[in-house]
């Protein structure tokens, strides 16, 4: 690690200051783009697993109220860790936010329990769905309402709403969730999160292991939820293509750092994103020799 970073301590410090400034500018950019104060903002957090493994090295991002924000990157870039840092699920995996802060609706939330955060309206849909296999689909949905105190009628009402968004769940309501298809499980997981009446959903890799048409279906529902219910989404995805079609703003994470961010449209038009994330390039494929140039550029960005 030390070798790669290079430069003396002074230079590194200067770089860090620059990066922090850049982060602040980014944050303002995203909020301004939505025209509102961000509902969730992450300020320069660092996450360490098991006291030694540094996974996030200063990530900052903003999720505007009522927007869909994409968090993109390859395997191991730190997308899931970022989401778990927000939802406070890190502690159960011996991870820790060691620097920076996370604010949700203007309050710091990095010391809360996961259930406190759910109560405040921010819930995570975990990667790989994680339905309760031995519970029926309906029971799964009802567990989502665990933190609610507003009575049976309101919960029944929301159950109906979830069934309206996901008609397939209504058909399968009495089957054991473990025996439903992958798409139905993803719907079940999103529906379960909706039952907590969230204002913000942290959606981790909804496209994982699903057929393209199902992915499309699920993203359509996410968009509908965003439009009709005003739920804000922070969406971690590897499928850059579809994520940038539905998101309004995007951040690209590499090796635990935000290397690029911007309006979804701008990111889609960016040459580097096109080449390295969308798999299309301009007129002719570049030779691999030029990858070096990109790496240099990447380091500069980082």
């Amino acid at each position: 690690m030390g070798n790669r970073a290079g430069g003396g301590p002074l230079i590194r410090l200067q770089l860090k200051v620059l990066r922090d400034m850049a982060n602040i500018v980014h944050a303002e950019g995203a909020a301004a783009a939505a025209g509102q104060a961000p509902v969730l903002s992450i300020n320069n957090i660092e996450v360490i697993y098991d006291h030694v493994i540094l996974v996030l090295k200063g990530v900052s991002l903003d999720v505007p109220q009522g927007g869909i924000t994409a968090l993109l990157g390859a395997n191991g870039a730190g997308k899931t860790t970022t989401l778990k840092a927000v939802s406070n699920l890190l502690k159960a995996e011996r991870g820790q936010v060691t620097k920076g802060s996370i604010t949700f609706k203007g309050e710091r939330v990095d010391t809360l329990n996961p259930n406190d955060l759910v109560r405040r309206g921010c819930i995570q849909v975990m990667e790989g769905r994680h339905c309760f296999g031995h519970l029926s689909v309906e029971e799964n949905l009802l567990t989502g309402a665990f933190t609610r105190k507003d009575g049976q009628a309101a919960i029944a009402n929301d159950l109906e709403m979830v069934y309206n968004y996901f008609p397939r769940l209504r058909e399968r309501r009495n089957s054991q969730a473990g025996y439903t298809s992958g798409g139905e499980q993803q719907m079940c997981a999103i529906g379960r999160a909706l039952m907590s009446k969230p204002t913000t959903i942290l959606l981790d890799e909804p496209s994982m292991g699903l057929a393209p048409q199902l992915v499309e279906e699920i993203f359509e529902i996410v968009k509908a939820l965003n439009d009709n219910e005003g739920v804000s989404f922070l969406l971690a995805e590897q499928n850059t293509n579809i994520a940038l079609r539905y998101a309004k703003y995007g951040y690209i994470l590499e090796n635990g750092r935000v290397v690029m961010d911007g309006e979804a449209q701008a990111l889609r038009d960016n040459e580097d994103v096109k080449e390295f994330y969308l798999g299309v390039s301009g007129e002719n494929r570049r030779s691999f020799r030029n990858v070096k140039a990109y790496k240099r550029r990447k380091r500069w960005l980082a």
Binding site: S87, A92, I123, H130, C131, G133, T143, G144, T147
Partner: peptide, 12 residues
């Protein structure tokens, strides 16, 4: 069934 998922939906 699933500790992690239970945590994530706000079950203490």
């Amino acid at each position: 069934d699933d500790h992690q998922a239970a945590l994530s939906v706000g079950i203490s």
